[in-house]
Design a protein around this nucleic acid. Structure first.
Length: 297
RNA sequence: GCCUUUGUAGCUCAGUCGGUAGAGCAAGGGACUGAAAAUCCCUGUGUCGGCGGUUCGAUUCCACCCGAAGGCA
């Protein structure tokens, strides 16, 4: 079976993915598929550095701003949605260009990781979290070890979130998450990706990040967050965990000054960029581009 | 000009009764399969201001020089 070609533009925040994607779309007759876990939300424009109206008009974009920020969303929602959009793009005779910085979304899509309809249950998850608070994460790890020793061995006792997830997976599917992971690794992907990332010198990237945060504040990030709070968003919501949002909420609540808020956003963005680099660096398929270099296919 | 205090990691500072030094923050590295802008793990990076003296050995003691802060004139 012929694999579907896919252009992927990934990399850390503030590395110019949007502009590169638009350029590639124009040049090769492509349509852009967002792979950013925060730009999927509506009303969150400034803080997520969503493409501007002009940029959105310059090329066809998909999966941008289509989820209400009060709602949950996950890779398991993203991947099937992206598959569908991509197959439509291909059927139009266009080239799909996946662009974004969320490593998990990109890898799961490109490697064609399967997410079934079951496999998640918010109630079980909440119950496990409650149990962890009572008895501690180590107790849960022991529990996990009884039916999935492979995962239990791999997970650090402090990583409660993953421990909970592994137990939740077993309880909802009757299979262990480690088995599931092995299976999906063996599976052939339907895609043949060409992956690119702009490789900035670290200090240059950090300058870009710092500058961009200043611009976000000038553009009215505080106002954007205020109106999100007005529409009922709360700090606990997934969308409000986004960098730029959680810190601005602290400022609006009065627990930090605007300067502290700006510094915190910058620092968290830099740390995020570092984590993104760690993720993408280990994917040997990614070709690095010099700053200013266009992608070549 | 004189007196006092001070100079140790990127920052704030500990410390060594003389045996080349350690915390917090910052930073760096890594993991990652349904919260992923999330979550978690690992790591001390240093002509101890400079130049001499004493000493087997000086970041530590002494002299001088340079910088910083305060005080007196």
């Amino acid at each position: 079976m012929k694999k579907l070609p896919l252009i992927v533009i990934c990399g850390p925040t503030a590395s110019g993915k949007t502009a590169l994607a638009i350029e590639a779309a124009k040049r090769y007759g492509g349509e852009i598929v967002n792979a950013d876990s925060m730009q999927i939300y509506k009303y969150m424009n400034i803080g997520t550095a969503k493409p501007s109206d002009a940029e959105l008009a310059a090329a066809v974009h998909h999966l941008v701003g289509f989820i209400d920020p009060r709602e949950q969303f996950s890779v398991a929602d993203y991947v099937p949605a992206a598959h569908e959009v991509i197959s439509e793009i291909v059927s139009r005779g266009h080239i799909p260009i996946v662009a974004g910085g969320t490593g998990l979304y990109i890898t799961s899509l490109v490697n064609d990781v399967e997410f079934g309809d079951d496999g998640s249950d918010p109630e079980i998850r909440a119950e496990l979290n409650r149990l962890a608070e009572e008895k501690g994460a180590e107790e849960l790890l022991k529990m996990l070890a009884e039916f999935d020793p492979v995962s239990a061995e791999r997970l650090h006792p402090n990583n409660l979130r993953r421990i909970v997830r592994a137990i939740e997976f077993y309880k909802t599917t009757g299979r262990t998450i480690s088995e599931h992971q092995e299976e999906t690794k063996r599976k052939e992907s339907r895609y043949e990706p060409q992956m690119f990332m702009v490789d900035y010198e670290r200090s240059v990237l950090y300058d870009r990040i710092n500058r961009r945060v200043d611009i976000m504040l000038e553009q009215g990030l505080v106002g954007e967050v205020e109106s999100l709070l007005d529409m009922g968003c709360t700090a606990e919501m997934q969308s409000m965990q986004g960098i730029g949002y959680k810190e601005t909420i602290e400022y609006i609540k009065g627990s930090i000054t605007l300067d502290e808020c700006a510094e915190l956003i910058k620092q968290n963005s830099r740390r995020y960029a570092k984590r993104q680099l760690t993720w993408f660096r280990r994917d040997g398929r990614i070709k690095t581009l010099a700053p200013g270099e266009y992608i070549q296919i």
